[in-house]
């Protein structure tokens, strides 16, 4: 496969996996958890490095996952003591991030584990960093990881589709139906962390936030049905990746930045033209529905 195809495939996988997870995030009103987890992942990566003293993917992934769960758990706990979720998220992620930065500057020393790259990511190099697989042949490492994660995400959402629906829209009902709401919450947070880490490695923290929140929010403007929303969000996610790549080529600029920016363009489009909740639609049937 050519270079461009790999980039587009990787970007689309990020778009799809994040788009799917993002819908649930938005509906559960936890959009900023994405921002928090994408930052605290740094602490996970640094700790994993300090413990295993290697920069290989596996330990990083586990470290990042644990950091994501720690973030979710801390935020949950602070909220349970009566702190507003906004503030709880703010306290947790900045603190964990600060600890990550301190660890880098004190213990990791000059080893090249830099904050800069972790935050920006570098999708442009992905196609060159390949592994060899038996049947498929050469495949970029990050793309492979994203494929696996995307499959997991789809599987977890599809298998427990009903449970997700109930816990998301009506947690009280879910509890009375005997669905383990808290467990679902942590399963979901694990899903968010894993997706974040996989995408993060490819495109950096900021891009992950854009991909998790923006396509889902745009999809939220198109439909009220969960399934449709999931599909639209995944499509918007993948489309933004491709559009972003186009913009990056056109302006000769950072690819991941452009992809984040492209999600914004598609959001603006949805904001204006969505038949259900778009601004133009509202203009036409002025009073009445909102």
């Amino acid at each position: 496969m050519s270079y461009t195809a790999w980039i587009l495939l990787t970007g689309s996988l990020v778009g799809i996996s994040c788009g799917l997870v993002g819908v649930l995030l938005i509906l559960r009103k936890m959009a900023m958890m994405a921002d928090a987890i994408s930052h605290t992942v740094l602490l996970g990566i640094v700790s994993a490095y300090l413990i295993s003293s290697s920069l290989d993917g596996g330990s990083m992934l586990i470290g990042a996952m644990l950091a994501g769960l720690l973030t979710a758990w801390l935020v949950q706990w602070f909220e349970s003591t009566g702190i507003h979720s906004d503030a709880a998220i703010g306290v947790v992620f900045t603190t964990l991030f600060a600890i990550g930065v301190i660890l880098i500057s004190t213990s990791v020393g000059n080893v090249h584990l830099d904050v800069n790259h972790a935050l920006m990511g570098e999708i442009s190099f992905i196609p060159w960093n390949t592994v060899h697989l038996p049947v498929i042949g050469q495949i970029p490492q990050a793309t492979l990881l994203l494929m696996i994660i995307t499959i997991i995400v789809i599987a977890v959402i599809a298998l427990f589709y009903k449970e997700w629906k109930v816990t998301t829209f009506d947690p009280a009902l879910a509890a009375s139906l005997g669905i383990p709401v808290l467990l679902m919450h942590y399963v979901f947070m694990t899903l968010v962390s894993v997706t974040t880490v996989a995408a993060f490695d490819a495109v950096g923290a900021i891009m992950v936030v854009a991909m998790l929140i923006t396509p889902a929010a745009a999809a939220n403007l198109w439909t009220d049905k969960l399934l449709t929303m999931l599909i639209i969000s995944a499509v918007i996610g993948a489309a933004s990746s491709c559009a972003g790549y186009g913009i990056a080529i056109w302006l000769n600029t950072s690819i991941s930045g452009s992809m984040a920016f492209a999600t914004g363009i598609l959001f603006v489009f949805s904001y204006l033209f969505s038949p259900r909740h778009g601004q133009l639609a509202k203009w036409f049937h002025k009073p009445g529905e909102i």
């Binding site: 938005i26 009103k29 936890m30 959009a31 900023m32 994405a34 921002d35 979720s85 906004d86 920006m120 900021i206 891009m207 936030v209 854009a210 998790l212 929140i213 923006t214 889902a216 929010a217 939220n220 403007l221 913009i247 990056a248 302006l251 600029t253 950072s254 991941s256 930045g257 452009s258 992809m259 984040a260 920016f261 999600t263 914004g264 959001f267 904001y271 909740h277 601004q279 509202k282 909102i290």
Partner: peptide, 24 residues
């Protein structure tokens, strides 16, 4: 103007603006 909650709106603006910044 939409049914999108504030935290999602913040996430959108934060990441899209920052992405634009990285492009620039």
């Amino acid at each position: 103007s939409t049914r999108i909650k504030r935290d999602a709106a913040m996430g959108i603006i934060l990441s899209v603006f920052f992405g634009g910044g990285i492009m620039l």
